[in-house]
Amino acid sequence: MNAIVTVIGWDRVGIIAAVCALLAENNVNILDISQTILQGSFTMVMAVDVGAATASFGDLSAALEELGSEMGLSIRIQRQEIFDAMHQI
């Protein structure tokens, strides 16, 4: 099952490293990463495969959210279907 991780906030050292480490710990495979600085704010979108994840979706979501609040970022994970539904016919 694919999901989208988005990270939005002020740029700082180690954001990608921290998010990737957390995903790796939970056996989540990263399929694609794109990252930009949009109007001064750090914006990263990752496509990931959570099919073999060791944690449940809920726990993964909570762990990313917690990491986000520690780093002063908004980090969320959402199943990809929601974006497909809204943006593809």
Binding site: T6, L38, M86
Partner: peptide, 16 residues
């Protein structure tokens, strides 16, 4: 394939 703009626009719709 999804693009970053679409993904961020959905998030903006939900957040703001």
């Amino acid at each position: 394939m999804l693009n970053q703009k679409d993904i961020l626009s959905t998030i903006e719709m939900i957040d703001q």
